[in-house]
Design a protein around this nucleic acid. Sequence first.
DNA 1: TTTTAATTTGCACGACTTGCAAATTAAGTT
DNA 2: AACTTAATTTGCAAGTCGTGCAAATTAAAA
Lengths: 140, 140
Amino acid sequence: MILVMRTPTELASVFREQGRKITPQRKLLFQLLHANETHPTAESVYAMADAKLPGISLRTVYQTLNELAEMGEVQFINVGNGAIRFDPNVEDHQHVVCDECGEVRDVHVKGVAKLKPTGVEEFTITDVGVVFHGTCKKCK
Amino acid sequence: MILVMRTPTELASVFREQGRKITPQRKLLFQLLHANETHPTAESVYAMADAKLPGISLRTVYQTLNELAEMGEVQFINVGNGAIRFDPNVEDHQHVVCDECGEVRDVHVKGVAKLKPTGVEEFTITDVGVVFHGTCKKCK
DNA sequence: TTTTAATTTGCACGACTTGCAAATTAAGTT
DNA sequence: AACTTAATTTGCAAGTCGTGCAAATTAAAA
């Protein structure tokens, strides 16, 4: 149901093919992101990474996440509260956000592709983002 | 077609009813926001305001915009690029964003209310935001 | 005019993210 | 295995956007 991102090994191949180097930092980050469904912020990825590889730089985390996003291996999701989150699920899907605690959950919704805006023919639409806001179970 | 916000006079009444004072700064901001369809950021509202009332504080602009938002007279819109924008149109509607220049346009879309996420019964959904991304005429 | 609470201001600070340059290192080459 | 070199990592400064705070100002009621 939930599509995971490429395995750390696959990502390493892709990186190498592009002339990028495989470093311990990158390897670790690939592992941490793989199958991660928590929509972590850069800070929380950093926290996980620092536990395994003490001393890793937050700057490196940001850098790697940005590279993965440029390569289309992770998605940015910015629901407007605080930090950007990263979503290893790059499948077409939507998000539900708890406005209390900020939790973000993946969700599928039918009919999104059918949504057509009217009155903006001058715009070339490339993408539609749907975000549901509400309150999660814990926060109720 | 486009619903404008309350007139400066109406807003002044509402403010007074709530025990708030009407200052030159607020009067000006009410005027600047009324019928404004540019989805300005706080900075750009400040720029317009400073031209009319030199010396007005950016802090005051933020404050007043926040108050108007709390009162439901303007909407925050955060499309994930840079600063929050303010939309005096509080009617139910959606937005189209040019990913090149950041322009935001109001748009109406049918079927948004029908969108239902599946698999998140534990969430109480209170709102749905739909944002179309694309490229505007000027940027093509 | 006086009084008083609301408002405005300026500045510091906070959260999040990026720029930069020096130090380090992966990985190809001899 | 040592060498070379471009890619990476790091630490820190700086940038952007927004808010907290306290002193000064002011709207508006008495």
